[in-house]
Design a protein around this nucleic acid. Structure first.
Length: 585
DNA sequence: TTTGGCTGCCC
DNA sequence: ATTCTGC
DNA sequence: GCAGAATGGGCAGCCAAA
């Protein structure tokens, strides 16, 4: 099969915004494709090469694809970079760069899907000295042999942003339509949630239809897609949604872990299904001590703790553990963690995903003998908003983000991979009265990409230090803008544009555009963190660290009443940091 | 040998 | 992570 | 309300450049 066929399908998908139409386009394509090639096609459609749990990664993204485009098209690197700023999409950049190319590649062999995919695999496999050069060469060869639409989508696969309006849920719709019926969609989705491998599901559907997919079951050492939650900002609202009663549970601020236990062996997986076993040997040992089952899949939050006081520490602490390959033993000492278990997905070989939540909780309690390092999450079944609010306050006092609310209805199954209102998170920062906003000055901006093309994708925000008369960066800001905001901000900032960084601005970050510090926006965040890159109150808490805002977003409020020097001061931000319960010392 | 850009993945 | 938008 | 696509801070590792 030619890659061209897939690219043409992508063109048609891109041209519509109707999901029904996308489903039809995809279903028609899936029926047409040879079953032996559908797997590759499905991964590429997700902007991936493999399912999430495969540790092999492309190791090539935004910057490298631009180099490959420059190399293959003969355009200069700076030309390609400028084009990227303007177009906001590496696919369009590839197309435009090749328009100007002198010699055409009319005589090249058409790209087959197989060759395309195998070249991408070669890019993923290449490592060590000279590997970046090799990746660029391999990609550039593909681009040289590609037609314009092929080049576009090849470039987008590299960045993992296909921008088709199609993702896994639409692929599942299409698989059901193509190889079974719409009514069978749930079975298809379940196979995906349980196997975490859309390519496998597609291949099974193409080869054996629903029968194939029915052979896919929950299995130890095969991570399943994590169940996710919606958000709400009051216990009243939550209780109403949950039908009057639900379980409230501490929401710990750590790393989510899915632990697979079989005959004394333990493997750990992250929310995105990366294997974390080697990074948390202490947790592995803890589970071996505390779990009493031949086989089990349990889930919990891995939270940084102070081993002397038992108190929870900031998220940043456990970040030092994640992804670590070297110095793991030292890191266990320096950044100890506690695993707070909250669910049981499989027990002694039995799949519990279809059981109501409280049954799973009982199963969990029946196999865990908690100790200092492996605990059960704090949980209460409540029907009163007042009691829920009191429990919420306890959670905050104990250093948690807030509460999770979990349905206890008969229908409260473990819905892998699905958002939905079986689980709802209720965080401190959702309550405006418990979460201060800050007024920050725009000092710079970054070119928008994708649907933000032609606008600023994000702004560079600063506090004011009146002692030094300096503006110090504290955060980028790219969330909370609606379409009207984006257009308005573009206009509002145009008189402030300056060619270089303003002389009163302290920034280690290089923005695409710079402004005189004048426009003030109201910003909400979850908390203040220590930052290696932002300059706000730099050195005040720790040498070589400034302050930054975690989860920053625009509240929608323009502070037209303020000028630049009336922004929140760096000293005020420092005071807010020091007033926080959890601080890195 | 050190530094810094880039990537991927936690939240 | 949060947020917005078209369906 | 779902699904998708914009966007954040910050960490470790890899590789190339200094």
């Amino acid at each position: 099969m030619l890659f061209r066929e897939l690219a043409d399908t992508y063109e048609r998908l891109e041209a519509t915004s109707s999901r029904l139409e996308m489903t039809d386009i995809l279903a028609e394509a899936f029926r047409r494709f040879d079953p032996s090639e559908i797997r590759m096609a499905v991964y590429l459609t997700q902007g991936q090469l493999y399912p999430d749990f495969n540790p092999l990664k492309l190791g090539m993204a935004d910057k490298m694809i631009l180099k490959a485009i420059a190399f293959a098209s003969g355009a200069g690197e700076s030309f390609v970079q400028d084009l990227m700023l303007k177009e906001g999409d590496p696919g369009i950049v590839a197309q435009k760069a090749f328009q100007n190319k002198k010699q055409t590649t009319l005589f090249s062999e058409p790209l087959t899907l197989k060759r395309t995919y195998e070249t991408l695999e070669a890019i993923a496999r290449s490592e060590g000295g000279g590997s970046q050069d090799l990746k660029i060469k391999l990609m550039s060869k593909l681009l040289s042999d590609a037609s314009s639409p092929e080049a576009k989508f090849l470039s987008r696969v590299i960045t993992g942003r296909m921008r088709l309006g199609v993702s896994s849920m639409t692929v599942l719709d299409a698989l059901a339509v193509a190889f079974a019926t719409k009514e069978d969609r749930d079975a298809v989705e379940r196979a995906f949630n349980v196997s975490s491998d859309l390519g496998l599901v597609a291949e099974e559907m193409a080869l054996h239809g629903l029968e194939g997919v029915r052979t896919i079951h929950v299995q130890v050492n095969r991570p399943l897609r994590a169940m996710l939650a919606e958000r709400m900002s009051s216990p009243e609202e939550i209780l109403e949604k949950m039908g009057g009663t639900c379980a409230f549970e501490y929401k710990y601020d750590g790393v989510r872990l899915q632990a697979h236990i079989c005959k004394g062996e333990v493997r750990l997986f992250s929310r995105k299904l990366d294997e974390l076993t080697s990074q948390f040997p202490d947790v592995v040992a803890g589970l071996k001590r505390t779990i009493r089952a031949d086989s089990a899949i349990v889930e919990g939050e891995c939270v940084p703790v102070d081993t002397n006081t038992g108190e929870f520490l900031p998220f940043q602490e456990v970040s030092h553990r994640r992804g670590r390959k070297y110095g793991v033993e030292e890191a266990i000492e320096d950044y100890p963690v506690k695993l707070c278990l909250f669910d049981c997905i499989l027990k002694d070989g039995e799949d519990l995903t279809d059981r109501p939540f409280l049954q799973r909780r009982e199963a969990l309690m029946s196999i865990v003998e908690p100790d200092d390092s492996v605990a059960l999450s704090e949980i209460r079944v409540l029907s009163s908003a007042d009691e829920a609010q009191a429990f919420f306050q306890e959670a905050i006092k104990d250093g948690c983000e807030g509460l999770m609310a979990k349905s206890v209805a008969e229908t409260s199954v473990y819905r892998a991979g699905n958002r939905g209102f079986l689980w709802i998170k209720y965080k401190k920062e959702y309550r405006s009265e418990m979460n201060d906003t800050v007024d920050l000055v725009v000092v710079g901006a970054f070119a928008g990409r994708g649907k933000r093309k032609g606008f600023y994708g994000a702004l560079l925000m600063a506090t004011y230090d009146p002692e030094a008369d300096r503006f110090e960066t504290v955060s980028k800001l790219g969330s909370g803008f609606d379409d009207a905001n984006l257009a308005a901000i573009l206009e509002m900032l145009s008189p402030d544009r300056i060619p270089e960084k303003h002389h009163l601005v302290d920034s280690k970050m290089e923005a695409d555009f710079w402004f005189s510090p004048r426009l003030v926006l109201e910003v909400r965040g979850a908390e203040i963190t220590l930052s290696p890159i932002h300059t706000c109150s730099f050195g005040s808490v720790r040498p070589d660290s400034g302050l930054a805002i975690r989860f920053p977003r625009f509240t929608g409020r323009f502070r037209d009443d303020k000028e630049g020097r009336e922004a929140t001061t760096s000293q005020e931000l420092l005071a807010m940091y020091q007033a926080q319960l959890k601080r890195v010392e």
